[in-house]
Design a binder for these strands. Sequence first.
DNA 1: TGTTATGCATAAGAAAATTATGTATATATT
DNA 2: AATATATACATAATTTTCTTATGCATAACA
Lengths: 111, 111
Amino acid sequence: MKNSQLYKGSLNTIIMKLLEEQGRMYGYEITQKVKEITKGELNITEGALYPALHKLEADGLLDVEVEKVDNRLRKYYKLTEKGTTENVNRLAELEEFIKNIQTIVNPKLSY
Amino acid sequence: MKNSQLYKGSLNTIIMKLLEEQGRMYGYEITQKVKEITKGELNITEGALYPALHKLEADGLLDVEVEKVDNRLRKYYKLTEKGTTENVNRLAELEEFIKNIQTIVNPKLSY
DNA sequence: TGTTATGCATAAGAAAATTATGTATATATT
DNA sequence: AATATATACATAATTTTCTTATGCATAACA
């Protein structure tokens, strides 16, 4: 993956946004979804994803349900109530951040 | 500063873009310019800025000229030829990154 | 039967910030 | 005159958040 350091810090917001949209998802599903949406340009590594999911869960923002499908384990995550609230804030912050960056690197597009 | 972790990785690109625009700038001037452009929302810390400038210089992307103004030191930085080329690439990557993030968190705006 | 896909996890290391601190001069305030 | 704020640089310790590498296990495909 190129420009990987750029998305530092935005992974948590991406995860939460997808969970808000999809209701619930398991880890591997999240990586595939992001790959699909970005046409292969953004690939979330497992070493980044799983620790992030665990931290969000530990922080009370996600709930987890373990299921066995085709004899393979899946851990389905969904937003808690706290997570839903927090998601709104983080999305707002991300939008604000993007707006600021745009103002700097592409003044023409900012109005 | 809020959402500080979001701009991890984009600092170098911000610096180079401003230098491209302004011709040459010194460190403190960069922090003030960013604060001004983003209406105080993005504050570059000195602990992030100066090491970043030193690294860009070490990588041959920036040239430095030391001047004394009002008995105070200023280090003016400008893009080298290599830096100018690299700036184009990094800006393109940043735009691409922003587009990808937008596609994920705000599908309505992506087309 | 070996490779690819699915599905989880963690440890070691690197990158890039924050926070705290230090030095020094100039200007504004009280 | 004394003090605080602004200007201007710098670095060390720590933290956060990734990458890379590795490990385990099952299913599907060639």
